Structure formats: C-alpha cells, structure tokens
Lab assay of single mutants.
Amino acid sequence: AELMTLTIVKGAQGFGFTIADSPTGQRVKQILDIQGCPGLCEGDLIVEINQQNVQNLSHTEVVDILKDCPIGSETSLIIHRG
C-alpha cells in the first residue's frame, strides 16, 4: 500500500471520475476520462484534496469540495492505493 500525490485539472465536464462511499472513506468508483486524471485508478482511496484531509467527511461533503474546485485549475489529490 502506498500514498501517492496526483495533480489533476478540472475540465468543463468535471474531473472525469466518480467517487463512492466505502468503509474507509471515499474511493474512486469509475474513471470516465483517463486523460483528464492521469495516474488515478479505480479503487483509489481519496485522502486529501488540496491539502484538506477528507477521510472523515461524508460523501456529500467530498463531492461539494470537488465541485468547488475551479475549472481549469490544478487540484492536488493524495490517494492511498493497495
């Protein structure tokens, strides 16, 4: 298992991935745009978004944080894999 830092840019259609609740937090459910989120894999656990720890937040709260990220700006994700 490892922590990885990824930088992704939000496009007009969003980030290009969906998230779902899991017992340990929000996991990447589906990658819709592989080019839009390079390095991200289905099943990755989202630990931080732009230096904000999201592991204890609800699904709705994490979705809102992602929605609030401006289109075209870089967003830093720390994910836990494995």
Rank of each mutant, 00 (worst) to 15 (best):
I34N: 14
N56R: 10
S22Q: 13
T18V: 11
N56T: 11
I78C: 05
T18Y: 10
C69K: 15
L57I: 08
G39A: 09
L77G: 00
F15L: 13
E48T: 03
I31M: 07
M4K: 12
R81G: 13
S73I: 12
G82A: 09
E74M: 14
C37G: 02
N56Q: 06
D68V: 14
A12P: 10
I65L: 08
E74S: 04
I34E: 10
G43R: 03
G72W: 02
P38T: 10
T7L: 08
A20C: 02
D68K: 13
S22V: 08
P23H: 02
V63M: 14
K67T: 15
T5S: 13
G11H: 04
G25F: 02
Q51I: 02
F17W: 11
H80D: 14
T5L: 06
S76D: 05
C37L: 12
E2R: 07
C69R: 08
D68Q: 15
M4S: 07
L32P: 05
D33N: 10
T18L: 13
P70A: 03
I34Q: 11
D64K: 13
N56S: 09
H80C: 05
L6K: 07
L66P: 00
G36H: 05
M4F: 14
N53S: 11
I19W: 03
E42G: 06
A1D: 03
T60S: 10
F15T: 07
G14M: 07
S73P: 10
T5I: 04
D44S: 01
L6G: 02
E42M: 14
E61Y: 01
D21V: 08
E42R: 06
D21G: 07
S58A: 12
D44Q: 01
T5H: 05
E42K: 12
V62R: 00
T5A: 07
I34C: 08
C41P: 00
E2C: 10
A1S: 15
I71Y: 15
G16L: 12
C69G: 09
I8W: 08
K67N: 11
I79G: 01
T7A: 12
R81L: 01
G43D: 13
I78A: 04
E2V: 08
G82H: 02
R81V: 02
G11F: 06
P38S: 09
G25N: 04
E74R: 13
S73W: 09
D68E: 11
C37V: 05
E42I: 07
I31W: 01
P70T: 06
G25Q: 02
C41A: 14
I78H: 04
A20S: 13
K29L: 03
R27I: 14
D33Q: 13
N50C: 00
K10E: 01
A20W: 07
L57K: 06
V63L: 02
N53Q: 11
S76F: 07
T24L: 11
N50L: 03
Q52E: 12
I79R: 02
D21K: 10
G72D: 15
S76M: 12
F15K: 02
H80S: 13
S73G: 15
P70D: 15
G72L: 12
L77H: 01
L3C: 07
T5Q: 07
Q35E: 04
P23I: 04
V9Q: 08
I78D: 05
E2T: 10
N56F: 06
N56Y: 15
Q26A: 14
C37A: 03
P70F: 08
E74I: 03
Q26S: 08
D64H: 15
P70S: 12
A1F: 01
Q13W: 06
I71P: 09
F15V: 12
G43M: 02
L66I: 01
G11S: 11
H59A: 07
V62Q: 02
D44V: 00
G11M: 07
Q52M: 13
G14N: 14
I71S: 04
V54G: 01
A20L: 04
E61V: 05
P38R: 05
Q26H: 05
Q26V: 11
P23M: 08
H59T: 05
S22P: 00
Q35L: 06
T7V: 05
I49V: 15
